[in-house]
Structure formats: structure tokens, C-alpha cells
Amino acid sequence: MTTTTETPESPESPESPEVQPEPRRSWLKEHSELGVCALLLALGVLVLTDALTMDVDITQRGPIGPKTVPLVVGVGLLVIAALLAVDVLRGGHGEAEGGEDVDLSEPADWRTVLLLAGVFLATAVLIDPLGFPIAGALLFWGAAFALGSRRVDRDPLIAAVLSLLTYVVFNNLLGVPLPGGPLMGVL
């Protein structure tokens, strides 16, 4: 009843620790969750540094100024980082999230993720010079390609129609301005 997407029949509890005697090489892989602790720790230090270096006006009213909550959050992050580290070292595991299109039995496909992130960044760069209709179409086509679609006839057509349609709906019907770019200048 705890994890959301597991099949209801699965008998083992999601928290059941799996400590397996593995060779040393894979120890880090097994405990890669410690990286999360490190990130939380770094975040906590960042928040605390920012809070402590604030110069606050003395004219504030009440005992709580703009520093207080960041200090609490920062300390909280440090404490949680430590607690999580203890949990992981004791054999606790965060359950990777399942889903109907998710196949956790295969190793993660990092190539696709990097490709998608790249396509997304390219869109951020291209959206101002090219305008939304073109940049959006490239985003859809690029993402579909990265995800394994190879229909050279159908993919760009769907991308173009979707992008143009979205542009018209948002820009003209809903009144949310999107940049038209050179294409709209021509039309």
C-alpha cells in the first residue's frame, strides 16, 4: 500500500533491505544512493552559507527575520543527509519508481536520456532566433527520434502540425504570447 505503482499482488514489502555479499567493486554501485546524501549535504551547506552571509536590516519586527527559515531548512538538510546516509549504510534502499511503461529489469538507457536533455537544451537556444513553431517542431521530432521513432515521413509532419497548432491556440486563442520567429514573419 506504500508504493504507488507496484502490482498489488507483489508479496514483499518495499522496504525489505537487500544486503547481498557482493565484490568490492560493486559496493559503490550498490550504495550509489550515498550520492543523494552528498547532494543534500552540499545543498544544506549552500543554504546555510547563503543565510549566514546575508546582511539584514535591523529594522525588522518580530523574532523571525529573512534569515531564520533558511537556517532551519539548511540545518534540516544536513540532518536528513546524515539520517539518509545511516539508512543506506544499514541496507535501506529507495525503491525506484515503477510505472506501466517502465521496465526496471533492464539497465537504464542513459543514451536516450542524454539525447533528450540535449534536444531540450537545443530548443532553449533556438526558440528565440527561430521562433516557437520551428523550435517546437524540432523539439518534438528530436525527442521522438531519441525515443526510437524512425518514421522519416510521418514524424516531421506530426511535429510541424502539432507545433503550428499549439502556436495558434496559445498565441491567438488563449492570448499567451509565443514568439512567431521568421516563419510567422513570412506568413
Binding site: 516557437f132 525527442a143 525515443l147
Partner: peptide, 13 residues
């Protein structure tokens, strides 16, 4: 691929 490309697309919008 279309489904998840579409999600990324609308997220960007």
C-alpha cells in the same frame, strides 16, 4: 515515442 515527445513538447510550451 510520440506520447513522451508530446509530454516534453507541452512542458516546454
Amino acid at each position: 515515442p510520440y506520447l513522451y515527445a508530446g509530454i516534453l513538447f507541452f512542458a516546454a510550451v
